[in-house]
Design a protein around this nucleic acid. Structure first.
Length: 106
DNA sequence: GGACTGACACTGG
DNA sequence: ACCAGTGCCAGTC
């Protein structure tokens, strides 16, 4: 389909918005939904430029291990943990999300 | 149009 | 189990 990469960022945002409350998705998952299974980096960048912090739940996006990004930027990893727990996500003692239970599967 | 950058993913030591 | 290096893709200079 036309102009896929031009809408790639938008696709990423759309995919992230589709993540249901109480679930999380990995960058690779979002990249796959966006149309590029290897563009996990681009997904991260897309969220970095996050134009709508109140619409895009970037805190529901974690890396492949269920860990949060090392350079998380809306207050710190602690804030992200609180937000996810507030949505019903339980964190492991390691500070990671249990993908086995909370990974969003479209 | 070419090169550098970057919120990842995967493999090897 | 952890750290380092490499590869991929789209964006920006």
């Amino acid at each position: 389909m036309p102009q896929l990469q031009e809408n790639f960022y938008k696709r990423v945002y759309q995919a992230v918005e589709q993540i249901p409350k109480g679930k999380v998705a990995t960058y690779g998952q979002i990249a796959l939904l966006a149309g590029s299974p290897r563009a996990a980096r681009v997904v991260g960048y897309a969220l970095h430029v996050n134009p709508s912090p109140g619409v895009i739940p970037c805190h529901r996006v974690v890396n492949r291990e269920g860990k949060m990004a090392p350079a998380f930027a809306f207050g710190g990893p602690d804030v992200q943990r609180q937000m996810l727990e507030q949505e019903g996500v339980v964190f492991s003692p390691d500070g990671t999300v249990d993908l086995k239970t909370y990974l969003w599967r479209p």
